[in-house]
């Protein structure tokens, strides 16, 4: 579709004048850049760095007396520093960098969360279409969503009899509730106008789902997915207590059993950062996808 190539009739208004961007003299640019960088450093980087350094110092002071039951930051660095510096090494079936372990866990979470996303959006879409159904299931979902991942473990094991599907089920069932609940809310919030448009065009259920419902409810769906991905990642330790293997969750369980406390601290760092990145990633995708709906 190339619009500019079409002949324009004389009746059409002329293109509005476009503001010209005047290039700044090179000198001005040069003097501006360090200022910008300095601004960013001062406002975005300095506060968190200062807080982290202070906390680490306090932690060090509090636990360096000797005889403390928890390791100090320096001890962690000395005993497990190589785990931080070398995320991707492999020297044996159980001896590998935490980066690999995080990736293995991410794959597992990806499957569980992916299923939860698909099923959650579909179920939410169906429930959202019926006020009666929504009133019926909402209390149930509100209760189920508070069940912690660990509590699903025995149920899941009993149902699947096998650790791998059980682990994925635990992630799935932990993540799905906010996705369903938010999708339902998003579907309820579709403006009557859009429903009227769909009615006039005689869109069928399938077309309505993809052309009206998903785009219109996208902001709701993505806030559900964002909560869901956070919960799915939270469930990884519980899930991998079952499966064993090379995941980061199992690594914590394993380190605890071998009394490698400092390793656990490093693993927590990896889990935290990964969770943060996942959250930002889903938020970013959500912003891109629902750009149109926001206006």
């Amino acid at each position: 579709m190339n619009v500019t190539a079409l002949k324009t009739t004389p009746a059409q208004p002329a293109e509005p004048p476009v503001a010209k961007v005047l290039p700044l003299p090179a000198a001005a640019l040069r003097s501006q850049w360090p200022g910008k960088v300095k601004d960013v450093l001062l406002t975005m980087v300095l506060p968190p760095v200062a807080v982290i350094v202070t906390l680490l110092a306090l932690w060090q002071l509090a636990l360096s007396g000797g005889g403390a039951s928890l390791p100090s930051p320096l001890e962690i660095w000395q005993q497990s520093g190589d785990l931080i510096l070398n995320p991707f090494y492999v020297t044996g079936s159980q001896d590998m960098g935490l980066g690999w372990r995080v990736l293995t866990s991410l794959e597992r979470v990806g499957v569980g969360f992916g299923l939860a996303a698909v099923v959650g959006v579909l179920v939410g879409a169906v429930i959202g279409q019926s006020v009666w159904l929504m009133r019926g299931v909402d209390p149930l979902f509100q209760v189920l969503r508070t069940v912690p991942p660990l509590a699903w473990l025995p149920i899941s094991l009993a149902a699947f009899m096998d650790s791998r599907p059980s682990a994925i089920f635990v992630i799935f069932i932990t993540a799905i509730w906010p996705i369903i609940i938010n999708t339902t809310a998003g579907v309820r919030a579709i403006p009557q106008d859009y429903r009227n448009v769909a009615a006039v065009l005689r869109l069928n259920q399938f077309e309505f789902f993809f052309k009206i419902m998903v785009p219109s409810a996208a902001p709701y769906i993505f806030s559900g997915l964002r909560i869901g991905v956070g919960l799915a990642w939270l469930a990884i330790v519980a899930a991998e207590m079952l499966t064993g293997g090379v995941g980061i969750g199992f690594f914590i369980w394993d380190s605890w059993n071998s009394s490698l406390l400092t390793d656990i601290f490093v693993a927590l760092l990896y889990i935290g950062i990964t969770g943060f990145v996942l959250d930002r990633l889903v938020a970013f995708i959500g912003r891109v996808v629902s750009r149109g709906t926001m206006t």
């Binding site: 579709m1 106008d193 859009y194 009227n196 448009v197 009615a199 006039v200 065009l201 005689r202 052309k211 009206i212 785009p215 219109s216 996208a218 629902s290 750009r291 149109g292 709906t293 206006t295």
Partner: peptide, 27 residues
């Protein structure tokens, strides 16, 4: 409802995530 009786709504009701072209194209 049906496309033989098209409605221009009180408040335009264009779908904001579609371009002008795609809004028309849908029908």
């Amino acid at each position: 409802p049906g496309p033989d009786r098209a409605i221009v709504f009180q408040n335009h009701s264009l779908l904001p995530w579609l371009s002008v072209y795609d809004n028309v194209k849908m029908g």
